[in-house]
Design a protein around this nucleic acid. Sequence first.
DNA 1: CTGAAAGCGCTTACAG
DNA 2: CTGAAAGCGCTTACAG
Lengths: 366, 366
Amino acid sequence: MHAAMAKQTSDDLIAQKSKRWPGLHALANKLGVSHTAVAMALRDDPRISEGLRKRVKSLAVEEGYVASNVAQSLLSGRTSLVGIVVPSIVSTFMGRLLQGITDGLQKDGCLPLVLCSDLDVQREKDALEAIAGKRADGVIIVPCLEDRGEDHFINLLSQHTPIVAVDHPLPRMDVPLVCSDDDLGAELATRHLIQKGHRRIAHFAAPIDSPSADRRREFAYRRVMEQAGLEPVVIHVLDKKLTVNLINTTLSEFFESAQGKATTAAFVFSDAVAYAIYNYAQDHGLRIGEDLAVVGFGGAPVARLNATVTLDIVRPKLSTVEQHPQQIGLAAVEVLRRLAAGQPVQRQTLIEPHLLEFESSAKQVG
Amino acid sequence: MHAAMAKQTSDDLIAQKSKRWPGLHALANKLGVSHTAVAMALRDDPRISEGLRKRVKSLAVEEGYVASNVAQSLLSGRTSLVGIVVPSIVSTFMGRLLQGITDGLQKDGCLPLVLCSDLDVQREKDALEAIAGKRADGVIIVPCLEDRGEDHFINLLSQHTPIVAVDHPLPRMDVPLVCSDDDLGAELATRHLIQKGHRRIAHFAAPIDSPSADRRREFAYRRVMEQAGLEPVVIHVLDKKLTVNLINTTLSEFFESAQGKATTAAFVFSDAVAYAIYNYAQDHGLRIGEDLAVVGFGGAPVARLNATVTLDIVRPKLSTVEQHPQQIGLAAVEVLRRLAAGQPVQRQTLIEPHLLEFESSAKQVG
DNA sequence: CTGAAAGCGCTTACAG
DNA sequence: CTGAAAGCGCTTACAG
């Protein structure tokens, strides 16, 4: 076993000693010129002779000079940092949203500072204070659902830093919102089922104690049903705490009732709950797509091989409403950019959702 | 319709004007003392009289004073920023990893700067340069799989900033690695199938042109099979580009061969590909868990209701090897912390995976 | 064509 | 008990 192999063992220790980054001063001293001259040479200022410029640049590469943004920020008042506050990172929606935000920021040369509120208002506040301390040039926040007091830190922050809310509004605050047009999404889903010939369409809805923004889907469903002269049937499968056990109980109760037995289609406020219905159906000999049409909400239900390649894993494939979270993220950055430029922005920017029609609701009935 | 309602329409415009944050100077002027005194009062320096201290603090709250970390950083040489470079944000593994990292950093009062390399070495380099410019106190990187030249920016960066690699090593560089013990994971999976009585266990493996780190699972599978006196059968379902169409072709070819027909169990290098086998099985009357036992790799296959609540969506539930990405993230932060403190660290930190045994491999055979 | 000076907002000595 | 000075690493006027 030679030395290279031994290095692979986990007993081998490693230590890194951190040297200070070389500054303009260090370069200037080595060249016997002023640090100002070095700075100008690096920025290709025409006032510096080509000879010095070349000497400076090659020394900079040699010494590994990287300009300190912290010094530049202190001077310019801009940090190129944007604070992102999300309730959680671990969900497909948040992942795609963050991807959109980071892609958008990259074009502006800004870097995202990602903080997690864990749906806790206090931690949300802490996150915003940290962002304020860092003097971020802007903030994008997916607010907690809980109500904040009038004196929330956001009120102070927004006086100094452009803020955009995503997904949920910040009630009573002058903060622009970017979100999916859930009203339209629910309308698309409900209309689709009606067009497929269904008359008895149940809606499995968000918890009844959710903030009203979360219940837009339910309201839109009710409106479309009533406009079509059909009776809305709304089932709340979850309470706010998302107790999983409650789901199966509620599903049993509903599908064993007379109303449930007559139901031929379900529009579900979340893909996850739609899959719970899949499982219930399988256990009770109900065929999804045949006996019961189902439309979910939230985007393509898939297993991810990597960032771009996905595989369908559930059959029949679930029809669903795609919210385009990545586009929401891009739009949020765009609104932030306008705000930072002092341009007026719309109080609300709605991203258009699309119905993805698959086997779970493909069959024409009636 | 009253004014409050009108504000909800998307035609309503909104503009934020950003005021400068008040500095120590502004507070000092209002109180008629020096800015040094104000700074000391805010930090509860005992040398400041209680009266002044109180006056300073109440004025600070009133004016919304938040100390500028950028000025502090310039002075201290520390930014409390940690650069995170990942190939993609949109995957459950990365999401959970990032959650672990951000949780860990929060304890240290550090903020993550999240950059995406999109599996491109050039963008990875750009990301690291941006992080260097920001003078981050540390870097955690999930490297691209491609090989980098000897002169990669990481070599320079590591002289000034502690770096930890996650998931994949940085070849030829003195950078500690934190990753899942894939060798053990594959061993657990293979042993499990052998203990269930299977003799003909196929392995669906990572692309053959993957870097060797990605093929640890295959090597471990081969070793365990040979130790048990069984013949390893390895199928590569994907090329490096992860062409989805190739999967079904390869699966058909294998399962229709004599060898494939004799196979009673499959250990699959990724959950996504395991689900492709589910679909193939369903189309060809093969019952997962009965005719064919399957063990995946990568963690619980679920639909997420939120950060903590998940629902099983695929049946029979897939046995799989949980890599604990969140723990990997926490460990990476811990290694970074030690490195920053000048303590030596192990070249490699392996996080122990666990077999999650479910219906897809529950049946005892033979 | 090039350098000295001032200052961004803080903190850490040091002096009164 | 309190303030003036120096300096972190840059850039932007201005002066030679």
